[in-house]
Amino acid sequence: MADITAWLVLGTVLLLLALSAWQQARARPLHRRLDALGLVPQWKFFGQADVGPEQGALDDWHVVARLASVEPGTSPGPWQPVLWPPARPLLAALWNPAARRHGHLLDMAHLLTRAEPQHAAQPTALIYLAVLRACFAVLSPPEPVALQFAIAVTRGRGERLLAIGFVSAWHRR
């Protein structure tokens, strides 16, 4: 009986490996509903990254925000940096606990800039709310002040090409 079980396990492993091989050829990974644990992972490691006017995977994403009084007739304040790709010392190769958090937040900022109408972010979208929370957490505006954030996109070092990829509505805490 144990032998049969072992061979069944081996068969399952080989089947999952075959599924994994098939999965590598697909443009997108399996939907998380089908593979919540990532048992059939898709390995690309920058293999999906491309360059071109529509490609943003290799650009840098910066979240900036500004504050404005809700009193009529007042102008908004200057844009202030909230989230940006952090400077990475060599020590980060040994100890880099914030990398996962920064990566997730900047990925969300990136998603907000997707131009396709079906992906246009609404103020109720989870990624929108997450970035908004980050802005409120960093700038901590007092109660009657409203906040607006934007996603700025830059490319390369030195010759930075700046574009605004997304501008939010005004929000109060």
């Binding site: 840098d60 790709p85 900047l106 390369g156």
Partner: peptide
């Protein structure tokens, strides 16, 4: 791609 990635801040 390699140039673009390695010259980015991210």
């Amino acid at each position: 791609v390699l140039t673009r990635a390695l010259t980015s801040y991210s």
